[in-house]
Computed example of a mutant assay.
Amino acid sequence: MATGPRPDWITTPITAGLLRGALDLERTTHGVLPHRLPARARAQCADAQLAMAESQPSGVRLALRTRATAVELDTLPTKRRYAGLPPRPDGLYDLLVDGRPAGQGSVPSGNTLHIDLATGSLEHRPGPVGTVRFTGLPERDKDIEIWLPHNETTELVALRTDAPVGPAPDRGRRVWLHHGSSISHGSDAASPTTTWPALAASRAGVELINLGLGGSALLDPFTARALRDTPADVISLKIGINLVNADLMRLRAFGPAVHGFLDTVRDGHPSTPLLVVSPILCPIHEDTPGPTAPDLAALAAGRPRFRAAGDPAERAAGKLTLAVIRDELARIVERRAAEDPHLHHLDGRALYGEADAAELPLPDELHPDAATHRRMGERFAELAFAAGGPFAAPDLSAHG
């Protein structure tokens, strides 16, 4: 049975120094809200989808050094409820002790955002603060990470422990800055440490900053500037699927937009290894343009499912499909790489392709499931970070 905190527990203010993976920390009525885009970027776009996505703390974690055997975190999450669909599970908090999984928890209470996919309507209903607790931790100095739910906007209200805490020390690991769509954000992953970028980062031994923004990888200039201004040792950009989903631009605009996005990132990272990743296989949009629309018949039956609402004949007018985008990205990177030896390209189908789709089909026609996230994370770690990959760790032995 849950009880209140013991009177001898220590309450530690939650500051930016205790967090990793966030680019901004907003003070709220209840506490602080981590953001994955800076305030200047948020001020340049009033899109509700972007606001929801960037405030969901995928890859954001508290990183502490402490002897504490018990930790309590008060939070105010925002849950999503979709009309006609079963309730989504509560978001998970993953606990790591010295880098190893050591527990999970959730906060059942919180605000609720009611969404009707058929009409696009949104309704916000307020709810109470809740607490996630981790007890029985080893009584020794240790690094603790609490990964926040990747799919719930999470205000951090209070941090309590039974021993003092401070920021986890910098272990000298390289920083990987990644940008992508809801697939990179972690849609349908099992937990925050098992999104494919989090799994790849763990296998590669790097620190992740995940700017995977559900529905919002749209070549926005403010996102490019956020990437430009964020220190990183390696950078990857996964481009394509959201441009088709939103039916946002035509081929004439796409090429220059990619060049402009890369130019901006390069303004801040002129020689950082930069990997452009094209879309994974998505059969409904390989040769059929967007927009992507909810399958209303499936929704009526209580199943989330999407369909391609464009017409393949519209490709002649410049509408984008995944096949068109892959060809154009490969061409752009090849051309730029002649003058930029640190720019690389990866066909997304190397992460999830035809054979994978036959074995592990996309459950809603758009998003990978937990098993596919694991496969993609393992493959990205091998293709990008292993010896011979564009992000392979430099060999320091030659200088020793």
Results as ranks from 00 to 15, higher is better:
293 A>V: 14
306 F>R: 07
372 T>Y: 03
295 D>K: 06
362 L>E: 09
349 R>G: 00
297 A>T: 14
374 R>Q: 12
323 A>P: 05
366 L>F: 03
357 A>G: 05
342 H>L: 08
359 E>W: 03
327 D>T: 12
367 H>D: 07
329 L>D: 08
338 A>F: 10
302 G>Q: 08
310 G>C: 06
331 R>G: 09
349 R>M: 07
360 L>F: 11
369 D>K: 10
328 E>C: 11
320 L>I: 09
297 A>C: 05
354 E>S: 10
372 T>W: 03
370 A>D: 04
333 V>I: 13
373 H>R: 02
350 A>C: 11
366 L>D: 00
302 G>V: 02
298 A>E: 13
313 A>Q: 12
332 I>D: 11
379 R>F: 04
301 A>R: 15
305 R>K: 14
359 E>L: 12
371 A>F: 05
346 L>G: 03
373 H>N: 01
320 L>S: 04
362 L>T: 03
293 A>P: 00
334 E>W: 07
338 A>M: 13
377 G>K: 01
333 V>L: 08
354 E>H: 12
374 R>Y: 00
321 T>P: 10
375 R>Y: 04
352 Y>A: 04
301 A>V: 08
294 P>C: 08
299 L>V: 09
330 A>I: 04
348 G>Q: 02
338 A>I: 09
312 P>C: 06
360 L>D: 12
302 G>P: 03
327 D>S: 15
293 A>C: 12
295 D>I: 05
344 H>R: 09
363 P>L: 09
342 H>C: 12
342 H>P: 00
373 H>W: 01
306 F>Y: 14
343 L>E: 02
363 P>S: 10
314 E>C: 01
319 K>F: 13
374 R>E: 14
328 E>R: 15
334 E>R: 15
314 E>F: 04
306 F>K: 07
293 A>G: 04
358 A>R: 14
308 A>K: 06
370 A>P: 03
328 E>S: 10
324 V>Q: 08
366 L>V: 13
318 G>E: 12
296 L>T: 14
344 H>P: 01
355 A>P: 00
379 R>A: 02
294 P>I: 09
345 H>V: 06
376 M>P: 04
306 F>W: 15
348 G>H: 04
370 A>M: 06
346 L>S: 00
